[in-house]
């Protein structure tokens, strides 16, 4: 019986099926808002799904010089790790379906896998653009990962626990905590923007410079998996932030679900606006932005949190 339950959880809710639907919805929202901010009509609601179906049904090409094994494994790996991360994110409840004491760390760790995969994907695709993109991916990874970790650490330190359930519980009991870590939320959103390689931090896949970076050589179903993985990472990212920074869900499950969705929509709107209002930075400008501005902000936030914690004595 419990195996069936596990399977349902992994494959349907909140696993694969729900994650895909949810992330496609967020992709649509992101694209639609982006388009409307640019005074365009924007894509219809089902466009992300159609795009996915179209890519999957296209011819599957593996370049002769590319590493066949890696070429097959990597797209699958990137999607599975992203979906696995989603399973640990609470959605309609204070806790996920498999809560344990360190789930926050596991999610952050699982989210780094797709970035590594991207690096390998470019490296093994035997294409100069892919290789340049790989290097940039790696450099960017070293840039955003530190501020991201520091930002995610903030609510954990405040709540005194690595468990998402405890963090959410703490914030629901002490609503001021949400206000106290807004700076960390901002840092986390900007780091997420870099993680997802979106403007202004999209140098690793800068279309006009290096075509599509690491995934230049990928076509058809494999490309579809990479795109899907990016969408899922977006979904995991905003879902995680809405939990650990915005006090998660509360109330009966349907209200909690609505609240959760509303928070995700707001976060997506913010990162869509960031995408719309800037030009792409060069890779060394990205690095210095993260290290010069975001890391100090995140550190300062951490100090403030520690002081608050000492002062209030919670």
């Amino acid at each position: 019986m419990s195996i069936i339950l596990d399977l349902v959880r992994i494959l349907i809710f909140p696993g694969l099926l729900f994650t895909v639907v949810f992330s496609l919805f967020l992709e649509w929202l992101d694209r639609k808002l982006y388009a409307r901010m640019q005074n365009r009509v924007g894509p219809p609601f089902r466009q992300p799904l159609w795009d996915l179906v179209k890519l999957i049904s296209k011819e599957d090409i593996i370049p002769e010089n590319a590493n066949q094994f890696m070429y097959t494994v990597l797209p699958v790996l990137t999607v599975t790790s992203a979906v696995a991360a989603m399973i640990y994110v609470p959605i309609w409840n204070r806790e996920s379906v498999y809560p344990f004491w360190g789930d926050l760390l596991v999610i952050v760790f699982l989210l780094t896998i797709p970035t590594m995969v991207l690096f390998l994907a470019g490296w093994f695709s035997a294409n100069p653009f892919g290789v340049v993109g790989s290097f940039r991916t790696a450099i960017q990874f070293l840039s955003y990962e530190v501020p991201l970790l520091l930002a995610v650490l903030t609510p954990a330190v405040l709540a005194g626990s690595w468990s998402i359930r405890d963090i959410v519980l703490f914030q629901q009991e002490h609503p001021w905590a949400v206000a106290a870590q807004l700076a960390a939320l901002a840092v986390a959103l900007l780091a997420l923007q870099g993680k997802l390689e979106r403007v202004p931090f999209d140098a690793p896949e800068a279309e006009t410079e290096i075509v599509a970076g690491p995934i230049t050589e990928y076509t058809g179903p494999r490309l579809a998996l990479f795109r899907l993985s990016t969408d899922i990472q977006l979904a995991v990212g905003v879902a995680l932030l809405s939990n650990i920074f915005l006090a998660g869900a509360i109330g009966p499950w349907y209200l909690a679900l609505l609240l959760f969705l509303a928070k995700c929509v707001v976060l997506v709107a913010i990162i869509a606006a960031i995408r719309a209002m800037m030009a792409r930075l060069r890779i060394h400008q990205i690095t210095s932005f993260y290290w010069k501005y975001l890391v100090p902000i995140a550190m300062a936030q951490m100090v403030i949190i520690v002081l608050i914690k000492g002062g209030v004595g919670v």
């Binding site: 901010m37 005074n39 365009r40 009509v41 209002m277």
Partner: peptide, 22 residues
């Protein structure tokens, strides 16, 4: 400064799109 276009983004978001659904 950063985000010089933000007012323009809001204006576009709340006005009718310039493209049509051909």
């Amino acid at each position: 400064r950063i985000g010089k276009v933000i007012p323009e983004l809001f204006k576009s978001l709340t006005s009718a799109p310039a493209t049509v659904d051909f």
